Computed example of a mutant assay.
Amino acid sequence: MKLRDLAYYRTGGRCQALYEPKNIEDLSRIVQALHATRQRYFVLGGGTNSLVLDEDWPGAVIVFRRMKKIEVRGTSLYVEAGADNTAVSQAALEAKLEGVAWMNRLPGQIGGTVRMNARCYGGEISQVTREVHTVLPDGSIRVYTAADGIFRGYKDTLFMDNGAIVAAAVLQLEEGVRGSIETRMKFYEQDRMNKGQFHYPTCGCVFKNDYSVGVPSGMLLDKAGAHKLSRPEVALNPQHANFVYNKGASSRDILELTLAMRDLVYQEYGVWLEYEMEILGELPADLKARVQDKKPARFQESKLEPLRALFQKKQNPGGG
């Protein structure tokens, strides 16, 4: 099986071994064996925030297609890593629980959502996560709580550094009114559809927002004219310049386009965009240095200030 059949972005070559654990204990045994043999691996999950490279991967891949359990426990949910975000929000709706309506139609699985501290529509997974059940790189099982400092900020968690695999999470929610929850879920779904987020495979936002800039990356890309970089096989979403459509592209095609997008914003505004998209696999030598390049911020304030004002106006359309 090619990984493109599993990845949301529809790219990826073959891997040496594919593992589908049934539960956290099974995942622990798999990781212990990989650790003992020093075999390289990566966790694909839903692949919604990732670009899997088309080159064959000489290692293992772990996917959570068999770990999708969702249990209602009073006002909390116990959710395995492979549960889709939409399924989590739907389960909470059925139980009349408030706190995860914003996850409706958010592509991906809860394991990745927790690992990257996802947020949208004013919600953030750190706000409701009470426990995170993980498997460490040596295969041992550890349960973290929010008090362990696992959530460090926007798209920043301990798990992104220590190699722990999120196997399950306990989400602490609140009693709510079904009608109110359902209305917001429908709004979020319609908003995503209106923005064309499901027209073609994407990885969501390619670049992180740098809050020190005061302008979201999508606006920077749009105002810098990044849409002109689109090609027939790989193109920017016309309504959201930080979303890149795969219309029949290779992973190299997508990477080349995103590198050009980053360079364009740096030339225009002096802002160096950092990837939010995870690149999984082994980068070809000629691309590795370019992807890992880092340039100092050189904010072009005269150009950024009007964009900040425009962004604030959009955030507060009724403001005086």
Rank of each mutant, 00 (worst) to 15 (best):
L229C: 04
M185W: 03
K186T: 11
L259N: 02
T145A: 10
L229Q: 00
Y266H: 11
Q267G: 15
K228G: 12
Y266M: 10
D161A: 15
A260K: 11
D253F: 08
E175V: 12
V244T: 03
E174A: 14
S230M: 04
G196R: 01
A249M: 03
R231N: 08
D156G: 03
Q190K: 13
Y154E: 13
S251A: 15
V213W: 00
N162L: 09
A241Q: 05
F243A: 06
Q172I: 04
S230V: 05
N162M: 08
Q172V: 05
K195D: 04
K195A: 06
G179W: 01
N246F: 02
S212Y: 08
P216H: 07
A169H: 08
R231H: 07
M185E: 15
R178C: 14
A146D: 15
R142I: 02
D222W: 06
L259A: 07
G179D: 10
N246P: 02
D263Q: 15
D148L: 05
G218A: 14
A146M: 13
F207K: 06
G204P: 02
H227W: 09
L236T: 03
T157C: 03
Y188I: 04
V265P: 15
Q239E: 09
K155P: 00
M261V: 07
L236Q: 11
R192L: 12
S251K: 01
R184Y: 14
A226Y: 01
M219C: 06
E268R: 13
N237R: 02
E174I: 01
R142S: 09
V213Q: 00
L158M: 11
E233Y: 04
K228C: 04
K155M: 13
E189I: 07
S230E: 08
K155E: 15
H240T: 08
D148H: 11
G270S: 07
T258I: 11
P232H: 05
A260Q: 15
S250Y: 03
G218H: 10
T157H: 01
R178T: 11
G204R: 00
A235R: 04
F198L: 08
G218N: 10
G179N: 03
F151T: 05
D191C: 06
R262Y: 07
K195V: 00
D191Y: 12
Y245P: 08
G218D: 12
E174K: 13
L257F: 06
P232D: 05
T183P: 00
E189Q: 14
A241N: 08
R252N: 09
A260M: 07
I181M: 07
S217V: 02
A169V: 13
S180M: 07
N246K: 01
Y154D: 12
N194Y: 07
